[in-house]
């Protein structure tokens, strides 16, 4: 969780970090790939717990303080985005349909993520893009 996650005193809506924004847009893109049934939480367990707690805190703040504009509940994306020395890493875990070859769906998901990352205005190096199929059918 970053400072960006905290509601400002003036009650401005929360501004999610760029990576959170990216993760959310990737989740939507991945779910649009033919054959993808579902995404699973790919964040490391601790990160997921912290993010969910932060999300719950924001909702709580919104409910408790009427002056602060209630923040819509925006659950963190299950897609994990992280930055290291070698660049950006993205991890996606999915369930795929058995209607089409699972390996083909997996490659399409990779392509969608790679394209989205390449289209980022700030650009930057990409380290790895991991796509894991956790269930078929």
């Amino acid at each position: 969780m970053t400072d960006d996650d905290v509601t400002t005193a003036a009650g401005e809506p929360v501004v999610p970090s760029a990576d959170d924004e990216l993760a959310r847009s990737l989740a939507i893109a991945v779910l649009g790939v033919p054959g993808v049934l579902q995404t699973y939480d790919a964040r490391p367990v601790v990160a997921a717990v912290v993010a969910d707690a932060a999300s719950a805190l924001r909702t709580g703040l919104g409910a408790g303080l009427p002056l602060v504009k209630p923040v819509p509940l925006t659950p963190s994306s299950p897609i994990a985005v992280s930055r290291g020395a070698a660049g950006l890493s993205v991890t996606v875990k999915i369930a795929v349909s058995e209607e089409r070859p699972a390996a083909a769906t997996c490659r399409d998901v990779y392509a969608v993520v790679a394209d989205a990352v390449a289209a980022l205005p700030e650009g930057g190096d990409v380290d790895t893009i991991s796509v894991q199929i956790s269930r078929i059918g």
């Binding site: 058995e98 699972a102 390996a103 997996c106 490659r107 990779y110 790679a114 990409v126 380290d127 790895t128 893009i129 991991s130 796509v131 894991q132 199929i133 956790s134 269930r135 078929i136 059918g137």
Partner: peptide, 16 residues
Amino acid sequence: SPRARLTVTEAAVLGL
């Protein structure tokens, strides 16, 4: 691509 890490879990294959 050298940046791609594509996998399927053993559990998914057993389910299949």
